[in-house]
Amino acid sequence: MQIPVSEIHEIIDREADDEGSIISALEKVQQHYRYLPKEALILASQRLGVPLSQAYAVATFYNAFSLKPKGKYCLQICMGTACHVRGSPQLLDQMETKFNIKAGETTPDHLFTLETVNCLGACALGPIVVVNDEYSGQMTVQKSDALMKRLIRKEGLD
């Protein structure tokens, strides 16, 4: 994907108001592209006067950043304690098997990214699976199977 430089400049302009803004700037870039393109990392470091090594350190230290593009569907499984005791590890196993990827990876066709998150704070609904910001609560292996099948069918892969 070609990233327009002017667009990155605009995003950084909005955040470059005070010290320490490299993280906020990268957060905005991440929000926009759902990952940090290499160009953006370099530009942000130049624009904000932060060494590229520090920008890279920040980008790889925090969980919210990704250096790789994400799939069309981002499936997040909550691994909070409440979800854990209610069976989220089985859901993760199931999805890893189904898509043949590990958590944190994206399918080769760039359709599905599988992620785990540390507690979304909606524990009454556990276990929770979030697909592109849409929450599904009180999941079971059956419900999650149906969810995956629905997505796969939607993409005409079935």
């Binding site: 010290e19 320490g20 993280i23 957060e27 932060v50 920040v58 230290f61 925090y62 969980n63």
Partner: peptide, 19 residues
């Protein structure tokens, strides 16, 4: 940005400073 250790006060301060 999703780092549990930032709940620790000195780590939190480092994070606000852009580290």
């Amino acid at each position: 940005s999703g780092a549990f250790v930032c709940g620790e006060e000195t780590a939190l301060i480092a994070s606000i400073e852009g580290q």
